[in-house]
Nucleic acid binder design. Structure first.
Length: 898
RNA sequence: GGGCGGUUAGCUCAGUGGGUAGAGCGCCGGCUUUACACGCCGGUUGUCACAGGUUCGAGUCCUGUACCGCCCACCA
């Protein structure tokens, strides 16, 4: 007999096995193998990041899939890596510099980059070791970083190709500008927040009039009065009768005095405000477009630093918000401020530093996106890529159908530098993959100082990591990847761009399935945030309860399309589940002799006792259910089935029932069979649970005797090591199907539970052995009970039971049989008459209700006509049963209160 | 303004071809039954948000309402 330690110590066990897996090559892809490929790429976390709850979920779920696929005999490639995360990383280092009293400009570009490289090299180890703690079974030998040379080459190839095809262009357009980060942002990097503001109604006098003469002027409304300094027109709707006479005329811009034409434009909503709009082409996206339609000049009054420019006249040099106040004061003083209203509106903020974004005109690089979006939309429409849950496809379409050109240049230093060079002498722009020597005209070339949006390189991740643009064997074998599992927050940032760029450059969709994971919230469904102090740190949780329990919790809570509320209760509950598995294993191990060098085959079921046939049947069903759930990405269902079977069937019933067969006094042949079945079931359970709780299952599986069949023993590809990560995934065994065993067990369970209930309700201590008399048993049921009397006596705590054959046998249901028994437990002296009477009354109420509804149903002729005959028969049976039950209860009540 | 999701036991949630409401945690009672007190046994708890409709039958399908949440958005 062997023994396991009393408890599972994840702190020592987990690292031991991860090291073993990694060093034995258990997670390595085997491109040369004949196994069918299965591939995923890991959404690369920020290289300087730390593992947060979102990562934990987005790695646990794919890890479950990968571990499962490895066991089903696939050649699994799960490719890991990290992202340089341009703006995020740069901001962190800039903050460090600020703390040191310096900044990047003082350091200079090269020294600054050296500094960021040093920081990212240093923190790279943090996130990767945390992934190991979680158990992510990635192939570390293929780890990539978005700034690696070969990935940078892919970035340049894509840029140059798109440029040459006219899909990347450079131009002066209005962009979102963060005055703190001092860079342009894409639309996605701007987060809109509804906030309280004011709507200022300002009178623009007719041109020629003095400031005081407002007759013939127009009132416009604005939420940003400081931008009026840059106005170059006023617009009204072409059909607006009120202003018809004004179109073509001019107004005078207060403060500045510039003459503004009144233009007619369909964009203007005549119903909003006064129906007249000030037009500021340099500081508002709509006005920018309107300005182009009407060939209006752009007057930039706010600079890249957020201060007013020389064009702002008296306000030059002021902060934009100070200027707002000052402009309002001046307008008021001049009597031009007609009205101020409170107004809630959405204000754009930088997603990285939360500064209010300033739209302004700037020269940037853009991707012309529509031609790329169309095939990416089609691929989801025709199912080449499928969303799970499928509703996310709507969100994807919604965005893709309304997509705008993508601003990809950033005025940062950390990232892929734009591969464009400008000639000092002529106007030539050279865009090339390599570094050009000089301009054709002989002039010196200067490289563009901007870098690319981080998501430009991430968008290439599924193929750039596999060696593209070379036609590598990896690309041929592993692209498109099988599935992508990622969070809903990056559907647009990342998933959409991988779709577009993958189809354009790798010639196919990047993945066949996109599983969108939910947001993890706190126990009460609130978003986790530092300020609320409700952030769950996965590393701390794993330290406390181990990675297995943590992972299992995430899987169990991952209902598709629903946010996850992570509660301590669930975490604790599943930690206890891990402990349960540990102890079931202890029990199994104690009862399997060490000499059992090779695993005995399961004996033919025909020769086995009912409990063995039952458990084999159930484990086969479990196998089918877990497999089906995984195939449908129902991690929650799979976890739930495992939990229920292992705890409430295998441990609570089978282990208890099998104990006598394993004892020393059991007959040898009987004991050997019991051992063989126990081992077979236990082995299967550990394999099925392995993807969810890799560490504890490996630890336990390694203690089991090796199977006789070499193909079953889970060697690593090089044949070096046995590991459950490579053990074959169990398959349902049709020959184990056994409805008879199921019905026997359910009868036994009902009888045993009924006796226990009676004992508990009447306060009979377990030590007191009871005699049970059973009346009116159906002959078949009587035979079953007699045939399994030992189990009944043992688990119900009976001294003996007997059948009373006084009444004729009838086809009563199990329930009735059981209820009848309570009357004959010789306990008359113990019964609390009042309590028992109340209980019976409650039950009578319940049954009366049921009876009522059944009579309604059966009394309805349409039910008899249309319902399935089987259903009608069942309803009739239930009705008959309910009536009998009702009569019994009445009798019992009468007996109690004579 | 548009899109999506939610409303089921005290809490957090399952309930995916319509057919007698489930789990975990919590709560109550009883147990040293030698795998496990991170345990065992038993018990309690629901006008399935509301209003209509389809159906013999609706938590489940349809329509509408209310409230909550998320995402997108160029009405000043």
């Amino acid at each position: 007999m062997r023994e396991l330690s009393k408890g599972f110590d994840h702190a020592t066990v987990d690292p031991k096995w991860y090291e073993f897996w990694e060093s034995s090559g258990a997670f390595k892809a085997a491109p040369a193998s004949s196994r069918p490929p299965f591939s995923m790429v890991l959404p690369p976390p920020n290289v300087t990041g730390v593992l947060h709850i979102g990562h934990a979920l987005n790695q646990t779920l794919p890890d479950i899939v990968c571990r499962w696929k490895r066991m089903t005999g696939h050649d699994v490639l799960w490719l890991p890596g990290t992202d340089h995360a341009g703006i995020a990383t740069q901001n962190v280092v800039e903050k460090q510099l600020a703390d040191e009293g310096t900044d990047r400009h003082a350091l200079g570009r090269e020294a600054f980059l050296e500094r960021v490289w040093a920081w990212s090299r240093q923190s790279h180890g943090t996130i990767t070791s945390q992934m190991r703690t979680l158990g992510s079974s990635v192939d570390w030998s293929r780890e990539r970083f978005t700034l690696d040379d070969d990935l940078s080459r892919a970035v340049r190839r894509v840029f140059v190709t798109l440029y040459r095809e006219g899909l990347i262009y450079r131009g002066k357009y209005i962009v979102n500008w963060c005055i703190r980060c001092r860079t342009a942002l894409s639309d996605l990097e701007v987060v809109h927040e509804e906030q309280a503001g004011r709507l200022y109604h300002v009178r623009y006098p007719a041109a020629g009039g003095s400031g005081a003469d407002t007759v013939g002027g127009v009132t416009v409304a604005t939420t940003r009065p400081e931008t009026m300094l840059g106005d170059t027109a006023v617009a009204v709707h072409p059909d607006d009768e009120r202003y018809r006479g004004l179109v073509g005329g001019t107004l005078r811009l207060p403060i500045i005095g510039r003459e503004l034409p009144v233009v007619a434009d369909g964009f203007v909503d005549a119903g909003f405000g006064t129906g007249a709009v000030k037009v500021t082409p340099a500081h508002d996206p709509n006005d920018f477009e309107m300005g182009r339609r009407h060939e209006l000049p752009q007057v930039a009054v706010i600079g890249e630093d957020g201060r007013m420019t020389a064009e702002a006249g008296p306000y030059a040099g002021q902060d934009r918000f100070a200027a707002r106040e000052a402009v309002v004061e001046r307008l008021e003083a001049e009597g031009l401020l007609e009205r101020v209203e409170d107004h809630r509106h959405a204000v754009g903020h930088c997603s990285r530093c939360h500064t209010v974004v300033e739209p302004l005109v700037s020269t940037q690089w853009f991707v012309r996106i529509k031609p790329l979006a169309e095939p990416a939309i089609a691929a989801v429409k025709d199912g080449r890529t499928r969303f799970v849950p499928e509703n996310w496809a709507r969100t994807y379409f919604e965005w893709m159908d309304n997509i705008h050109d993508w601003c990809i240049s950033r005025q940062l230093w950390w990232g892929h530098r734009v591969p464009a060079w400008y000639c000092d002498r002529c106007e030539t722009v050279v865009v090339e993959e390599g570094t050009p020597e000089a301009c054709g005209c002989g002039g010196a070339l200067r490289q563009d100082t901007d870098v690319l949006d981080t998501w430009f390189s991430s968008g290439l991740w599924p193929f750039s990591t596999m060696g593209w643009p070379d036609a590598t064997a990896d690309l041929a074998r592993y692209y498109p990847t099988s599935v992508m599992i990622t969070g809903l927050d990056i559907i647009f940032f990342w998933v959409a761009r991988m779709m577009m760029l993958g189809m354009k450059f790798a010639g196919d969709v990047p993945f066949k399935v996109v599983y969108i994971t939910s947001l993890v919230r706190d126990a009460h469904g609130r978003k986790m945030s530092k300020s609320k102090g409700n952030v769950v740190n996965p590393l701390q949780v794993m330290e406390e309860i181990g990675a297995d329990a943590f992972r299992f919790t995430l899987a169990a809570l991952a209902s598709p399309g629903m946010d996850i509320s992570l509660s301590e209760g669930r975490l604790r509950g599943y930690r206890q589940f891990v402990n349960k598995i540990w102890n079931v294993s202890r029990f199994a191990l104690m009862n399997l002799p060490a000499s059992m060098a090779e695993r005995p085959p399961v004996p033919p079921t025909a020769g086995l006792g009912t409990i063995h046939r039952w458990v084999l049947h159930r484990v086969s069903e479990l196998t089918a259910e877990v497999t089906r759930a995984l195939e449908g990405y129902r991690f929650d269902v799979a976890a739930d089935r495992l939990y229920h079977f292992i705890w409430h069937e295998y441990a609570d019933w089978y282990i208890e029932l099998v104990k006598p067969h394993l004892q020393d006094d059991a007959e040898d042949r009987d004991r050997e069979r019991a051992r063989a079945v126990l081992l077979a079931v236990h082995d299967r359970v550990l394999r099925l649970a392995h993807p969810f709780m890799p560490f504890v299952t490996e630890e336990l599986w390694q203690t089991l005797p090796a199977p006789a069949d070499a193909a079953e023993d889970g060697r690593t590809p090089d044949g070096a090591a046995r590991t459950v990560t490579r053990a074959p995934w169990p398959r349902p065994v049709p020959a184990w199907a056994d409805d008879e065993a199921v019905s026997v067990l359910s009868l036994l369970q009902e009888v045993i539970t009924a006796v226990r209930t009676v004992r508990a309700e009447l306060g009979v201590p377990p030590s007191r052995r009871l005699r049970l008399r059973i009346e009116h048993a159906d002959p078949a049921e009587r035979a079953v009970i007699e045939g399994h009397g030992d189990y009944l006596r043992r688990l119900a705590g009976l001294e003996a039971f007997e059948f009373v054959a006084s009444a004729p046998a009838d086809p009563d249901t199990i329930r009735r049989l059981v209820r009848r028994m309570r009357l004959y437990l010789p306990l008359a002296g113990v019964i609390d008459r009042a309590a028992e009477t109340a209980r019976l009354r409650r039950e009578i109420d319940k049954i009366s209700k049921q009876l009522g509804s059944l009579e309604g149903k059966l009394g309805n002729p349409k039910f008899r006509e249309r319902a399935d005959p089987e259903v009608v028969a069942e309803a009739e049976a239930r009705h008959a049963e309910a009536r009998r039950r009702r009569r019994q209860l009445d009798e019992m009540l009468a007996e109690l209160s004579p």
